[in-house]
């Protein structure tokens, strides 16, 4: 399956790989995986969850979506080293093949070039053209809402859609010259507290500081990721009874005063 083309049958299963789920899970990252799993199950789409921890390798062609969450400082250091040593090449190959790579909080930082903490520098995998510095100022904490950047990819009707979440990060992340943000901050701090940008997106690789967790607060975004990972138009996903999901989304938006 290394050629990037899936057989039609394969589309009936979403194959998710959670990177370091026992270390990078500080902001209830399990909620993101659970939302993907249930929404696939309710539609009769298969769901395979595998995990890849310290020292382990994965097959770049064996997964449609990679998830990397946030961790405590020491755990994040451990994972950063391991990511470079054992997973970076395969992750680049998977991303080039079109797999979705979603990094949240610490995971977002590790998808960038590097993270400078005083005299120390943690190297990232460089899938996103971003760099992070631990600022002298206070941590950026609070409810946040962002509007997704228009035109990130032709043919998508994502324009003007809003994500809600909670951010809590000491790092300030800046985008490279040609790096698109994931969205613009409506309320909250965003990547660095001043640029008005939040997250980053390049192809199907997405990084964001929004946890809360992200997908339970934005079920529509979970569906969008599922469609992207399976390579089907979002409209082809069977609609679900999302009354509770919409209320939860609105509740998180209200918390961010949007």
């Amino acid at each position: 399956m290394g050629d990037g083309v899936r057989s039609p049958d394969a589309k009936s299963t979403l194959r998710v790989c959670a990177l370091y789920p026992d270390l990078m899970n500080i902001y209830a990252d399990r909620g993101n995986l659970l939302v993907l799993e249930r929404r696939c199950a309710w539609r009769g789409i298969g769901f395979e969850l595998s995990s890849c921890g310290l020292g382990e390798h994965f097959d770049a062609g064996a997964h449609d979506l990679f998830y990397l969450g946030g961790g405590q400082d020491r755990d994040q250091r451990l994972c950063a080293e391991d990511l470079i040593e054992t997973k970076s090449a395969a992750l680049h190959a998977a991303a080039a093949r079109g797999a979705v790579v979603l990094g949240v909080c610490g995971g977002f930082q590790l998808l960038g070039h590097n993270y400078a903490l005083g005299n120390e520098q943690i190297e990232g995998v460089g899938l996103l053209d971003v760099a992070t510095v631990r600022g002298h100022g206070p941590r950026l904490i609070g409810n946040i809402a962002i509007e997704l950047s228009p035109g990130a990819s032709a043919g998508e009707e994502r324009e003007g859609r809003v994500l809600a979440g909670f951010e809590n990060h000491g790092g300030r992340t800046t985008l490279g010259e040609r790096q698109e943000p994931l969205g613009r901050v409506l309320r909250g701090h965003g990547n660095d507290g001043c640029s008005g940008y939040e997250g980053a997106r390049r192809g199907n690789t997405i990084g964001t500081y929004l946890h809360g967790p992200l997908l339970p607060k934005n079920a529509w975004f979970a569906d969008w990721l599922v469609a992207l990972a399976l390579g089907v138009p979002e409209g082809e996903l069977e609609p679900l009874d999302d009354g509770i999901e919409r209320e939860a989304h609105l509740s998180a938006l209200r918390a961010a005063r949007v």
């Binding site: 899970n25 902001y27 209830a28 659970l34 909670f166 809590n168 809360g212």
Partner: peptide
């Protein structure tokens, strides 16, 4: 706690 993420843990 302003962050209600914990319910997912």
């Amino acid at each position: 706690g302003r962050d209600v993420s914990w319910i997912w843990d």
